[in-house]
Simulated scan of single mutants.
Amino acid sequence: MQQTQAKIQEFLSRFFRNHDLQLDEDIFALGFVNSMFAMQLVLFIEQEFKITIENEDLDFANFKTINAMTRLVESKTNVVTPA
């Protein structure tokens, strides 16, 4: 979890240099995200974590904070073993 958070935070810090972004800060409410950056963010997450973001995953709630993105990545990468 911490490694995922760190990678996402590092990516975002390249764009938000003058702001120490916290894990639960809403990047949309802060005004940091436009449509072009949202596309970059989705592409980064797909490539960095080797996952596919499906249409049903494209919800603001999944991308508004570092913690939300971490939960999304972990939900897409956790393999559930049958009981």
Rank of each mutant, 00 (worst) to 15 (best):
E54H: 07
I53Q: 01
E46V: 02
Q2N: 10
F28M: 04
H19G: 01
L21T: 06
Q5M: 15
F44G: 02
K64M: 11
F37M: 11
V33D: 00
L41K: 03
V80F: 10
Q5R: 13
D20A: 08
A61G: 07
D57Y: 10
T52A: 02
S35Q: 06
F49C: 01
F37E: 06
P82A: 03
I51L: 04
A6C: 06
A38S: 11
N18M: 13
T77I: 06
K64D: 06
D24I: 10
D57H: 07
F15W: 13
N18R: 09
L30I: 06
D20I: 14
M36A: 11
S13L: 13
Q3E: 09
Q9I: 15
N62A: 05
Q40D: 07
T65L: 04
N18T: 12
T81M: 13
T52Y: 08
F11A: 05
T77F: 02
F16M: 03
F37V: 14
G31C: 06
K50N: 09
S13Q: 11
D20W: 11
Q22L: 03
S75T: 13
I27A: 02
T81D: 10
E46Q: 08
A6P: 12
T81E: 09
N67S: 05
A68E: 04
L72E: 02
L12H: 01
L12S: 00
M1N: 10
D26S: 00
R17L: 12
N78T: 07
N67W: 05
T65D: 05
L72G: 03
